[in-house]
Design a protein around this nucleic acid. Structure first.
Length: 294
DNA sequence: GCCCAGGCCATTT
DNA sequence: AAATGGCATGGG
């Protein structure tokens, strides 16, 4: 039957369900601007607007070219091998089964970094609100099937704004940090191209030079934007998970101890393991954003 | 009103 | 190195 929300001329790409769970991947807290649209989703791959809808073992695509979609969704990540590499404990097995098909996307580096600068002390829904507000205020308009969406503002566009304008997007105290970071990127004081060429540790250090970027935000940018699949962001959820599931009853578990454990225990695809644990906990430990099923 | 939210930063132990 | 408090905004 026809789906009225699906733009005319949509193409079909064959992707097995267990190779990709689109909805879970979009809602797991790695990316913050996709909007539910009928049976599918609308978003931007950089400056390329796209409609995506998963039906059984197929993906409907309208807008951006297939190759760009495949790259953004990281369909080349060896998911089976990645999941098989996870440590074999009950918590990890449960998380892996709960979010089967969840992928870590290849987001544009700047968009990813900037979004996580705004993420401090905010719920995922709020981060999305701020992203959409920033896009509408400073981003390039993109048209798809008669509907307008917006690219994420470039560093130059954001650097030209005022702190008050950013605060008007709901950023609060994050506005000053984001503005200063945008100006450092725009001026070339810090180069994301250079960061992309560095090893993980050096890249993390370089990102931490930016205002509003600490180890956690840097790791998110490395994992979700720079494709560093070993990067292991430790936020309040992951810290709770590690303490509860892996350090039960232990005392004086220092941040240093947690970092060392995370780096050695979860392996080369630690970032993937982290995201599976994160999403599983958020969906099953209450709070968060239960009940909103589009 | 009260609580907390994918932290960062400066300051103090 | 580890703890502490301030920082804006919005939703439950």
């Amino acid at each position: 039957m026809n789906n009225p929300s699906r733009p005319p001329g949509a193409r079909l790409l064959s992707v097995a369900r267990d190779r990709l769970d689109l909805a879970t991947s979009l809602r797991c807290g790695q990316v913050f601007h996709w909007e539910s649209h009928g049976e599918g989703w609308i978003g931007a791959l950089g400056d390329d607007p796209v409609y995506l809808e998963q039906v059984d073992d197929a993906l409907w695509i309208a807008g951006a070219p297939d190759e760009r979609v495949e790259r953004y969704l990281a369909l080349d990540h060896p998911l089976e091998e990645i999941v098989a590499s996870f440590p074999q404990d009950d918590a990890m097995r449960g998380a892996a089964q709960f979010s089967r098909g969840m992928r870590i996307f290849r987001q544009p580096e700047w968009e990813c970094l900037a979004s996580f600068i705004t993420s401090a002390m905010k719920q995922v829904a709020h981060i999305t609100q701020m992203s959409l507000a920033l896009r509408r205020s400073f981003g390039q308009p993109l048209v798809l099937g008669g509907r307008t969406l917006h690219a994420y503002p470039t560093p130059a566009a954001m650097a030209a704004a005022s702190e008050a304008q950013l605060r008007a997007c709901g950023l609060g105290f994050r506005a000053a940090n984001l503005l200063r970071t945008a100006r450092m990127i725009d001026s070339g004081e810090v180069s994301l191209e250079a960061v992309a060429a560095m090893g993980d540790d050096e890249a993390r250090e370089e990102l931490c030079r930016l205002p509003g970027v600490g180890v956690k935000v840097a790791n998110c940018a490395l994992l979700f934007g720079f494709g560093r699949l070993a990067a292991f962001p430790i936020d309040v959820w992951i810290e709770r998970i590690l303490r509860t599931l892996y350090f039960k009853g232990k005392r004086r578990v220092t941040p240093r101890r947690l970092r060392e454990f995370a780096a050695t225990y979860f392996g080369a695809y630690g970032g993937y393991a982290q995201q599976y644990l994160f999403h599983h906990a958020r969906q099953t430990w209450g709070r968060g954003e239960r009940g909103k099923k589009g």
